[in-house]
Amino acid sequence: MTILSAFDIGLVVLILGIGASTIAAREAFTAVIGFVVYGLLLSIAWVRLSAVDVALTEAAIGGGMTGMLILGAVARLRLAKGTDTRASLPVRFAAGGLCALVAAGLAIAILSPPEAIPTLAPMVMENLAQSGLGNPVAGVLFVYRALDTLLEKVVLILALLGVWSLAPDSVWGGIPGLRVYAQPSSTLTFLAQLLPPVGIVVAIYMCWVGAKEPGGAFQGGTVLAAMWLLVMIAGLKNVPSISQPWLRLLLVVGPVIFLAIGLAGMVLANAFLDYPSGYAKPLIIAVEVALTLSIGVALGLLAAGPPERVQQQ
């Protein structure tokens, strides 16, 4: 036990140190590299908190995708002129005091848990068997709180629309400005040929296993997005223009099927987003498969950014 607590303390010290360095670093580049490392350490923390589903999501999205996104932005921002002036010392002191106050408040809240800690875990487990799922987190996401999950997919699509809407009018319907490093027969091409088959298998596995073990649509979708981005960056596949009908269809297929099954529940089962008894598991897996596709495409396009070029005929 002591070894583990020493490990935990070491982990926390590392997380805090690297976290602070991403704030304090002078160079944006240094800060981003720190952030990616931070994301990976954080996913270890999530494993230590027995939340493997979250650990996977954090590693894939929090560290990986976010890191890639910000790194790409840093590369482009090197072109930016001028620098902003840092806040003056008194302002920084005041802000520091305020932030310390918030952190202290949170610490007090964490250090004073209720005497009998309330939990929904038994209730989740009691009812999980009905749905045929084995992973309680998937149960919460797709059975008990399916409404939140459904709406969150709409959030993802709106975010993508928001990103796209930043394009100049002249290139609307064009191709996202993802940087392509197309050098024939480079090592990157080799990687982009070798990795995607493996990655797709991993994504399918994650999506499939999510019903009973950690994993699921988010994690699978992220792997899918990463593979797609790799293939596009290596220049093996063209970045599709955002007006492609198949692209739009893929983006909404997950939420649409989710919504349709939810509405069918009003007729075939007892309520909206209720599954007919006995069919819960196959329906949820159908939803998860469709969502994996939609999430993969949405995350990939979010990372690719707004359209910047018109499609050449």
Partner: peptide, 9 residues
């Protein structure tokens, strides 16, 4: 369970 799954979700 190692934790309450609701906050994890």
């Amino acid at each position: 369970l190692g934790g309450d799954p609701v906050p994890q979700a």
